[in-house]
Design a protein around this nucleic acid. Structure first.
Lengths: 355, 355
DNA sequence: AAGAATAACTAAATCGTTTTAGTAGTGTTT
DNA sequence: AAACACTACTAAAACGATTTAGTTATTCTT
């Protein structure tokens, strides 16, 4: 006995894949004294199974349950060429922005029996490329790109959230940026602000330019020119408030006067407020600060942030749904762009300009 | 020609799985006029491939690159019974807590060529069960349970972060809670605090009881009894500061006096501070508030949070590494518990008690 | 009573790899 | 010249499902 124990039985360790599928269709067939075909037909309730007597069907169902038979997903995927899996690309898991969207994505996917791989790339082009080939290798059926540049055409359906590439075959879910900027700027103008500063997003985020440009354009409509030295940007691979802190410092260091600061997102607004306070400016008494996204801590910050809300959860759901539809019917007319509407949430980080 | 276009060619749409693997080993073999065996042997650099002349090998590599051949992951998985995939369970993607850990996990996994599925369950037992069976179905090789109850023994390797189940075969990565509580309480006691209140975690989080109990025990060491009506808890499925806000209100509503509040995490501390301020108490002048985790907004909050830092990123890396090791060598001696050390970060939400 | 239709199944191919167990052909011993 | 080793490959089985194309046995027509 010791002998048989020492004998090398199998090289590879028993992995989950192996143990999990210990009860296979073939074994089930042997137990039931039926062919694998019959069982497969019945368990998948194929039309042909109608001709199989209820009694036999019950026997099959019962045995499958009793032996805890679970069809091996891998084997099935190989045969039917569907993986029921999509790949999600995202700059950083740690932002509320990301997770709100992912919440919506997950809900919709689960509803339709899909799962997802996730790759967070910090905007690094080589990481994006790497994840993409990773996804393809693993046979995802579609790709959801969140705030991720998507410049090459893909043979897979791709839905992009807050991407702004106009690559062929791509569906974009994006915010009405003109509307968002207009609401934000109008709010500030109504409070008497004329000298605006901006913290742009990360250099590589597809969202950066649109959002900044929309603000500048909106300001122009109110007869306000945004000085280019009052535009700073987030840099590097840091998504903490620290990044906004640094960007705000750069603006403050110019010594150019401004009364309102429009930030790329709420997190950078939080960092910016710290920088302003350290420089002896009170928010909102001396400077009004406007966030973006309305993450759930925005409301609880001191001061509570005035911000432009994106319906992130909904965008996630919409994106997932669009993608699954495109997968189910690739010939289908894919809408090229879905636009969602922003909402200005007025709290206490903005106030009337003092005079 | 139009005819051939109209003829139904295949029922199923061309999915990624299908198109991606359009260049298969067999086709490659045909092009090279070699057998699939030879090619597989060479591409996987098996020892036997040594007997194949360099020239042939070069031809194979060249053709594989030229035709962009990528072995079909599904087919390979089926054959070798390895999926190089793990499942990660987490209560909520949206917490900095989660994403810091996931960052560490992802780094380690990528390093060792693994990928992961993620399931966020909001502590709902049926969601946990559902994801678990989902994972098994998809043949993950191991499970990483983050802040997730793990009460059934599994035939797969399981590593748990901040879980505290002592289930057989489980490896736990956990904080030195006694040390953490001691540091926190000592800090407050040194500032003169005697009347402590606590916001416990979510009912279903495995972390809740240990953390609260450790604090109560630490307090006892300093001769302080924590009144049970000054202990409130997070409830429901909400991970925003709002949850901490509600919990703090409950404590405030008792009208029992307290000078320090120890919160389950930083997010709930932020909510709690709002509740205190609304009730007319200043932080830290009237009440000191202590957070937990040191998420990256803690430093930027007003007031900046004093908090007990967990090395979340490191814990993620350690957990992933432990899990991969257990997968690689299931017979290996698995350490049952890895303990990591907390660090008290003193900022400005705690202060000397006034007299 | 021959033929068609239906019921109740099943054999074998297939998906795209990996792997085991070879096979020819050449060269080297003894 | 038989035995052996080596080189350069290959055929076929296997992984675990699904699916196509049947096969019996029975019942229904006419």
């Amino acid at each position: 006995m010791a002998d048989s124990k020492n004998r090398p039985t199998k090289k590879s360790p028993l992995t989950g894949a192996e143990k999990n599928s210990s009860v296979t269709l073939k074994k089930l067939a042997k137990v039931l004294k039926l062919s694998p075909t019959t069982i497969s037909l019945v368990l998948n309730s194929k039309p042909i199974a109608d001709s199989i007597p209820q009694e036999t069907q019950n026997r099959i169902f019962e045995a499958a349950r009793r032996l805890n038979y679970r069809p091996n997903y891998i084997a099935r995927s190989l045969r039917v060429k569907r993986t029921h899996t999509i790949g999600v690309m995202i700059p950083d898991l740690g932002r509320r922005f990301s997770s709100s969207i992912l919440g919506g994505v997950e809900e919709k996917l689960l509803e339709r029996d899909y799962f997802y791989f996730i790759g967070s790339h910090g905007y690094r082009p080589e990481a994006i490329a790497r994840y993409k080939s990773f996804f393809l290798e693993r046979c995802v059926e579609g790709i959801l790109a969140i705030d991720t540049p998507q410049n090459q055409q893909s043979f897979l359906p791709v839905v992009s959230i807050s991407g702004h590439d106009k690559t062929k075959g791509l569906t974009n879910i994006e915010l009405n940026h003109q509307g968002a900027a207009l609401q934000g700027v109008e709010h500030l103008v109504n409070l008497g602000h004329k000298r605006l500063a901006i913290i742009k997003g990360h250099d590589l985020s597809p969202e950066t330019e649109v959002r900044c440009h929309s603000i500048v354009e909106a300001a122009r409509k109110f007869g306000i020119r945004v000085e280019s030295s009052l535009i700073s940007e987030l840099t590097g691979n840091d998504t903490s408030p620290n990044n906004g802190y640094r960007a705000a410092k750069k603006i403050i260091d110019t010594k150019i006067e401004f009364t309102a600061l429009l930030c790329f997102n709420d997190t950078s607004a939080i960092g910016a407020i710290r920088a302003l306070q350290e420089a002896g400016m009170r928010v909102p008494e001396d400077v009004s600060v406007l966030g973006f996204n309305d993450i759930d801590t925005a409301e609880f910050y001191n001061p509570p942030l005035t911000t432009i809300r994106q319906p992130l959860y909904e965008m996630g759901k919409l994106a997932a749904e669009t993608l699954l539809d495109a997968i189910a019917d690739p010939s289908g007319e894919t809408v090229k762009t879905h636009t969602v509407e922003p909402e200005l949430i007025i709290r206490q980080s903005t106030a009337r300009v003092k005079e």
